[in-house]
Design a protein around this nucleic acid. Structure first.
Lengths: 153, 153
DNA sequence: TCTTGACCTCAAGTGGACTTGAAGTGGCAC
DNA sequence: GTGCCACTTCAAGTCCACTTGAGGTCAAGA
């Protein structure tokens, strides 16, 4: 199979060229050369992109996906990570399912005010406990703060 | 019930004060006065915050949630929006479910390379079609671009 | 009266995954 | 030979829901 230039890869995969460059920068894909300035990719990149799409829709970050790929070789998938992600997904699915059911009910509930409907109130409870801060405040890199000139009195 | 100051609301609701200020700025909650500088909230704000949490975990943006609240009155919930969000959730649940199953399989699959496993390859197909760009490129506000000085030859 | 410290405001930072703009470059058709 | 134009690079913009920092204020306790 002939190598594909970035436009061809974009066309075949549906991934915009800017995203492809971004993936390359992050080490998720590798170009095999150039034609002029233009990147050339091995046809195998399409499979790799499918794999990336898979990871993304499973909720993996690009960094996590990158960790699954050996530097240049074939994907070396970490089974433990996979299983853990599956469990995570399972939890998310269950939360979303109660949300969906609650929402459906709320959309159809005849109670004059939702706050008077016991089902709705239960939903509120679910949201409060199961709902989530997504940002878990974990290990965030900090940058030096900005300064503002002192206010004149 | 006595009015609550922001710290009390934060304590009772689990929502950080900075977020409460943010919500007030966005019009999601309203403070009923001040004690000194300190915001005071009606106790009803707690119910409202539960409602907000509900909306958030259902995938609504703060703006969407704001639209559900009458300027000052009780929540006026848009049943159509709710139903639509429920459908959206349903779709997401289904995607996540195939992902989860695929992931589980991949974690256990004995094939030497995942790419050789038919199940895994099917999963790749799902990811490619069902997977998603979340950013749908819809009506994004643009700001004037930046300029860079011309590069010297 | 003075100190304390939790609040206040405003502006800017943060993460993640890209996208966009401006200016430069080079293969290819003519 | 030359013009086109799709590519290139780099930096900065975008979205969203907050958080953070600096410096200011004031109610309450000592």
């Amino acid at each position: 199979m002939r190598d594909l230039d970035i436009a061809e890869v974009a066309r075949h995969s549906g991934v915009p060229a800017s995203a492809l460059r971004h993936y390359e920068e992050k080490g998720l894909i590798v170009s095999v050369g150039r034609r002029g300035l233009r990147r050339l990719f091995d046809a195998g990149v399409l499979e790799r992109l499918a794999l990336i799409a898979l990871g993304r829709s499973a909720g993996l970050s690009l960094d996590e996906i990158a960790r699954m790929f050996a530097p240049n070789g074939p994907p070396k998938i970490d089974r433990q990570l996979l299983a853990a992600k599956a469990d995570e997904l399972d939890l998310r699915i269950r939360k979303l399912t109660s949300m969906r059911d609650g929402l459906r009910h709320a959309a159809a509930c005849p109670a004059p005010s939702h706050l008077e409907c016991p089902k709705f109130r239960r939903l509120l409870g679910i949201a409060a406990t199961a709902g989530g801060r997504r940002r878990t405040g974990s290990a965030r890199k900090r940058r030096p703060p900005h300064r503002r000139p002192a206010r004149r009195p």
